[in-house]
Write a protein that binds this DNA or RNA. Structure first.
Lengths: 233, 233
DNA sequence: ACCTGAACACCGTTCAAGT
DNA sequence: ACCTGAACACCGTTCAAGT
């Protein structure tokens, strides 16, 4: 109807409907993800998602309970992309592989990171990484209870690190000398002594290096045999 | 003015306006926080906040740029509650004190946790903890650059841990035997071997213990002198 | 200086009705 | 079985006008 189409189909504007043929939960997940990638998570609405599918907003309710369920579906969809790394004979390497795989799927859709990393998923899709990481942790010789503690610490660190990286946006990196200089100046202007001394390092942020540093640190912890003995008191 | 005032002031419904006398950025922060505490972050709207203040929604725009700015203001308000712990002669104890102070202000308004922990604040209020923690980290003998790395790891872990704790809600705790049993059963039904073995521990979650475990672990790391030498390769 | 009426372009969701 | 029209009670925000 935007042009010379004489049909009495529903009017469309902007991008054409992907497929008016078939609606489905998967199609909705993908449409929502495309909205998120293009315009961020705040742009997700029943109406914006349905527009992409060339369908009325209310039609979504046949495949999705409500907006919260739709967002859960997106988070699950992203988590499902996770491919469990094959085990090697190195515990350290295996944990590192899990961490990087987590990072990979998260940064594939950085604007969806909050969703993926903070939604309490009731579904079963979150269990695969838990099983996989527990398996590696058990190889350190620790029992199930201790392994769970380490799993939680490891996941918390991973989530905190990835949330920061994803929400920092592309602005906050090493690749922007002007921005670095500006941030450094602001920090130095604060007058706080430690911040003044550390300003050059606080002002820059090498994503890859920073991730590796934190992951190496936390993994060393998880694989150092006597750590918890010292803490147990 | 709340009682037998025959004036032709604007009509009020439900809870009385707190103070139609004076609107201010601080008053708005507090009103928003009270909405968050009572009904969660999704209940925050220009209209819901203004209703508490007995004022029209549009009036808020005299003190706040837009809704995003209002939420930033709330995050800052919570962060300002942070009272830097006094230094002792123990590095470990001082880092622990910072961690617990962070936890204290976060859990004082658990529904605002996402806001406080994930908002990229452009203001200066976030600098106090950075300065304080850097100061402690420098006492380990590390230089500013290394101290910044550890600061980032420590904050990421803290944020990940507190996000989990705050969003878990009061449901997911040790204090609910029925819930624990149910979760354990669900986990065991997954058929995944490691999850089956760890189910009793995955099903329960002692907030205090879990926080202490992670914080002790990460602090031990920050104060172990030779850790980064081993990683440096 | 501070507040609001009118107005706009949006939301999520229900339900009864259409094919 | 799947989709939508009508409808409701909400949103954030602008701007010109009131005191």
């Amino acid at each position: 109807m935007t042009d010379a189409t004489p049909s009495l189909r529903p009017p469309r504007r902007g991008r054409p409907p992907k497929a008016q043929a078939q609606l489905s939960r998967t199609a909705i997940q993908q449409a929502a993800l495309s909205v998120i990638d293009a315009e961020g998570i705040d742009a997700v609405s029943m109406r914006s998602v349905s527009r992409i599918l060339g369908v009325d907003a209310k039609s979504l309710y046949h495949y999705v309970e409500d907006k919260g369920d739709l967002l859960d579906a997106v988070a699950e969809h992203v988590l499902e992309q996770l491919r469990p790394p094959a085990a090697t004979d190195s515990i350290d390497a295996d944990l590192r592989a899990w961490a990087h795989e987590f990072r990979r799927i998260t940064l594939a859709h950085p604007q969806a990171a909050t969703l993926v990393l903070t939604r309490q998923l009731s579904s079963t899709v979150g269990l695969a990484p838990v099983e996989g990481i527990l398996e590696v942790l058990r190889r350190t010789g620790r029992g199930p209870e201790e392994a769970v503690h380490f799993l939680r610490t490891l996941l918390a660190t991973l989530i905190g690190t990835l949330l920061r990286e994803a929400s920092a946006g592309p602005t906050f990196g090493t690749t922007d000398p002007a921005g670095i200089a500006e941030r450094q100046a602001t920090l130095e202007a604060s007058g706080l002594p430690q911040i003044g001394l550390a300003a050059p390092y606080l002002a820059r942020f090498d994503r890859d290096r920073e991730f590796d540093f934190t992951v190496d640190l936390i993994i060393r912890l998880a694989t150092t045999p006597d750590v918890t003995d010292q803490i147990a008191d």
